[in-house]
Amino acid sequence: MHVVNVILAGGASRRFGEPKASHVYQGKPLYEHVKEQLLEGQTVIISHPSLLPFFKARGEQNVWLDDEEVRGCGPLAGMYTAMKKQEAEWYLVTACDMPFIRKRTAEIILSYCTEHTDAVIPLVHGRLQPLFALYHRRCLPFVHACLKENQLAIQDLLRKLQVRIVSEEELNVTSNEFCNINKRSDLPENGMI
């Protein structure tokens, strides 16, 4: 099964006050905490324009801006760009601001991928987690349709797909694993929430 990891780092990080992907936490940028926990294989980064020099300076090879046609349209634009530019069967799509995710969780999510499933989405703390989830390549036309129709919420996309929801019990998640870092106070000093 050919999987490409996609780190979404194209947001403006307004609440955080600086680009989250490059914020150093416990000795390394947030995006590196995420990257270390992804599946084996290639990783692509969908970047905010201001972060291109940062990623290049860190030796990242596959860093792209959102496709011009959909630039500024949020996570769906990043998914569309990755799927359009990089051939794969499955895409592990993740936000750059989830430094506590674990490779083991990604591997369990991958185990639920089947030929009849378009997306595998965790359900944690009563909420779907579409930004640490797997999407099949056949989602690309649905992502594109959502973008063309200005339906930019990932929930709009999920309504069009065959989705396998995986519970936190099935994933055996840690208490803080799916915490998004939206403001500096979300980052505890010792790495635990």
Rank of each mutant, 00 (worst) to 15 (best):
E68F: 08
P53A: 03
V70D: 00
P53F: 06
P141L: 10
L51Y: 01
A106I: 00
S47M: 02
S111A: 13
H48D: 12
G78M: 05
I46T: 01
P130E: 10
T43A: 02
P122N: 05
K85A: 14
D97C: 05
I109H: 00
A82K: 00
T94D: 03
R71E: 09
K56T: 07
K56L: 14
L110D: 09
F142A: 11
E149I: 10
Q86T: 12
A133K: 01
L128S: 15
Y80N: 04
E89C: 11
V93G: 02
L110V: 14
W64H: 10
E87K: 12
V63Q: 08
E68Y: 09
V93E: 01
R137F: 11
I45N: 02
I121Y: 11
H48W: 04
I108W: 03
C139A: 15
G74Q: 06
E89S: 08
H144E: 15
H136V: 07
I121H: 10
P49W: 08
S111C: 13
N150F: 10
K103L: 08
K56Q: 15
L140Q: 12
R104I: 00
A119F: 07
P49R: 13
Y91N: 03
L52M: 14
E68T: 10
M79I: 06
W90T: 12
V120C: 10
G74D: 08
G59I: 10
C96S: 15
V124T: 10
K148S: 12
E149D: 09
N62K: 05
R137H: 15
F100R: 08
W90L: 13
R137E: 14
I108M: 05
L52K: 11
T114H: 11
G74T: 13
E149M: 13
A82Y: 02
A145F: 06
E69R: 13
G78N: 01
A77H: 01
A133M: 09
M79V: 05
P141G: 03
K84M: 03
P75W: 14
K56F: 09
P122W: 01
